[in-house]
């Protein structure tokens, strides 16, 4: 009976989780080699050559990687600091409501708000003008659609920092970090040593899988970079959609090449990161 239930579970997982993904991947793979597609007429490496030699993909991947890395690093660091310093205040009903609130805001809305606040015709530009800091809109610094991706990173931070704060607060409670800190103090640790030897290692060791998953999620984010990103280089998802929707039919196949490459890199990275350490992560 139990084996039967297990088999049904596996079957459902394969049907819902594996088959659609595998089908979409195979479709993209065939498209990228010109085997299927309206304007394609058989197997060719032309689209792969074009994408690899143009360097657009690698530039876009590197750009996305850096943005995701900076956003995750700042938000994890910020959330750890908030958890360490304001834990007791965050446990009040009002504050826990406030911290949950940003999680309910969709990415596209966050992107739109950021644009409204930081664009050259936005809220802060107008205030700066009123206060006499700038005399015309062009003097306001580029904070959206800019090369340093400040707008994108800001939006990502507002989206994921509350999540990490909640995650760390939960782990802090479940892992009894409070008692362990008192114990460490009793063994001779000062506040700094408690942070470095107890607080940080416990919280990061318990949450690193989610941190990496969030990094992968940001790497493939679409709405926020679509609203706040620059023309070139673009973040990966924006580049892929743009290529696939072009009038030039060859570009559609190149878009699928980018999608396949991205999927392969992320999948290989995820396998390398998670498989060897899975046993250890659960043992602790």
């Amino acid at each position: 009976m139990r084996i039967k239930k297990l088999n049904i579970g596996i079957l459902l997982f394969v049907l819902v989780g594996v088959v659609p993904f595998a089908a979409a991947f195979i479709y993209a793979l065939l498209y990228s080699f010109g085997i299927i597609g309206v304007a394609n007429d058989g197997f060719t490496l032309q689209f792969w050559e074009s994408v690899i030699t143009s360097g657009t993909f690698f530039k876009s991947f590197g750009y996305s990687f850096l943005i995701a890395l900076v956003a995750v690093a700042i938000s994890v660091g910020g959330a750890l600091w908030i958890t360490l310093k304001f834990r007791q205040q965050l446990e009040t009903r009002f504050m826990s409501f406030i911290i949950y609130l940003p999680l309910a805001v969709p990415g596209i809305v966050t992107g739109f708000f950021t644009f409204q606040l930081f664009s050259k015709g936005g809220f802060f530009a107008r205030i700066s003008h009123k206060l006499g800091f700038i005399t015309e809109a062009s003097q306001f610094p580029d904070l959206v659609n800019d090369g340093l991706a400040i707008g994108i990173i800001f939006s990502f931070l507002t989206m994921i920092t509350p999540f990490f704060v909640l995650l760390f607060l939960n782990v802090y409670k479940n892992e009894r970090v409070e008692e362990l800190s008192i114990l460490a103090q009793s063994l001779g640790a000062n506040a700094n040593q408690i942070s470095r030897r107890v607080f940080l290692p416990i919280l990061l060791k318990k949450t690193w899988v989610l941190i990496v998953l969030y990094f992968i999620f940001l790497l493939g984010a679409y709405e926020v970079p679509l609203i706040l990103g620059q023309e070139s280089p673009q973040m990966l998802s924006v580049l892929i959609i743009q290529e696939i929707k072009q009038y030039d039919l060859d570009k559609i196949s190149e878009g699928y090449v980018v999608a396949v490459l991205y999927t392969l890199i992320v999948s290989v990275a995820a396998i390398l990161l998670f498989l060897p350490k899975r046993k250890r992560a659960y043992a602790t």
């Binding site: 892992e175 009894r176 008692e179 362990l180 008192i182 103090q185 009793s186 001779g188 416990i202 602790t284």
Partner: peptide
Amino acid sequence: KPEKRSIVYLYQEDLLFPH
């Protein structure tokens, strides 16, 4: 301060550092 007393307090439970 507690860390300067050379007094160790042991909890009822076997509270070990999980990492």
